[in-house]
Design a protein around this nucleic acid. Structure first.
Lengths: 231, 231
DNA sequence: TTGTCGGCCGATCGCCGACAA
DNA sequence: TTGTCGGCGATCGGCCGACAA
């Protein structure tokens, strides 16, 4: 996954450490994300000085959820110890360090939280004005109705096609054909956030941020047998 | 999985070894079922004398495909070597030994290979006369049409409900409502075999045998993204 | 400007008897 | 006896403008 795409999809507070940075590993922050893997009650909060040896950016093949794999090498810091950042974790999207390099955003992007109508009803998506004007290619407003096909890649590079139309009274931008297929394939629900990105060369990319799921695995979802059919 | 249910679903040639039996492990038979896991070209066919230490019967949670996990302990046989059975394998449905105990079938069962109509058309299943007469509960033929709801468990114990009706000209037995749901959930295709079983207490069980799939993993099935929607 | 709703049209699902193998 | 077919009614998906927030 490209760094700029990753950053656009990650939560705004996310900061990526650079290789060689001296950080603190905070076990409690890590355990917070993997409550099922707790081997035993953790000892009192403690910070371990570490050095970042490798950073790998990725996106889940199925859900497109972005993550960062941060390899740490334990050991004391060479320079004077700076104030430890208690939010440091590893292999999570909220990893950060003490000297975040300012990222230059190389692409335009727009985010929207899915409404109930976006996720459930009729299979359409209401495109906010700003997104249609600044991210999507401009429509031919002489046509009636103005309509175009958009092809955009997800964060794994797979293409998705959407019908973008400007219609209704009052007029508004919508994504229709293709949208519900995307929602179903990505298992999106209201509250999830879509990220539409446009590169300088015009390429379109669609990314995702998911709201926390409770529980992460739906009971009975793995085995459809437990849902016997109604008469 | 109960032993009698397992035996009814396994292919007729299947025989289960007993713990302590002295058998031969035949690597080529095993490799035949796992062509993808061949570490290297196998040496010339060879038989390894082994003793069965444990037998576990199971059914795949999703597909209900039955299998036997047979633990072998390598070592020379104590008694005089009997004629080795070249079909012996481990962890497969075709496992066998040299002294199959005669199984007492504790249940009635009926098998049918799915036709194209059973698997594809209209969501119904043509019930052969023998199955309706000897396996299913008898219908009330005074009703018009004679109809009943059947609830049967799959080999994992999950309940499935089918509408059993006797109708048409000429009259015939059919499973209608509920059948297509079962076909879709179990990913059945024409050529697969269903096994309807009735225990002495009247309980109904439905099992499956699958025809070999080529390939075993459908290309592109894992990632729906590679199938962009048609306009 | 945009979220939600009801209308409605077309596609699909699935129950049906007809008919022939 | 039973496999396949065409018919057709019910259901569902999904595109639409209306309307109000």
């Amino acid at each position: 996954v490209d760094r700029d795409v990753w950053l656009a999809c990650a939560v705004p507070l996310s900061r990526l450490p650079t290789v060689g940075a001296e950080v603190y590993y905070f076990p409690h922050g890590h355990a917070e994300q993997c409550p099922a893997h707790l081997p035993a009650p953790l000892p009192a909060p403690h910070l371990f000085p570490c050095t970042v040896t490798h950073v790998t950016l990725g996106a889940d093949d199925k859900t497109n959820e972005v993550f960062a794999k941060i390899s740490l090498s334990p050991g004391p810091h060479r320079g004077g110890p700076s104030r430890p950042d208690p939010t440091s974790t590893s292999t999570s999207t909220t990893a950060s360090d003490n000297s975040p390099p300012q990222e230059t955003i190389m692409l335009s992007y727009f985010t929207k939280e899915l409404t109930l109508s976006d996720a459930n009803n009729g299979g359409g998506f209401s495109v906010p004005r700003y997104c249609a004007d600044h991210i999507f290619p401009t429509l031919d407003f002489d046509a009636d109705p103005p309509v175009q096909n958009l092809v955009m890649s997800d964060t794994r590079g797979n293409p998705w096609q959407f019908r973008h139309i400007y219609r209704g009274t009052p007029r508004r931008h919508l994504l229709t054909t293709g949208w519900s297929r995307f929602v179903n394939a990505k298992l999106l629900v209201a509250g999830d956030i879509v990220v539409f990105m446009r590169r300088a060369n015009g390429d379109l990319i669609v990314g995702l941020r998911r709201t926390p799921r409770y529980p992460l695995v739906f009971p009975g979802a793995a085995d459809p047998d437990h849902q016997p059919q109604a008469p």
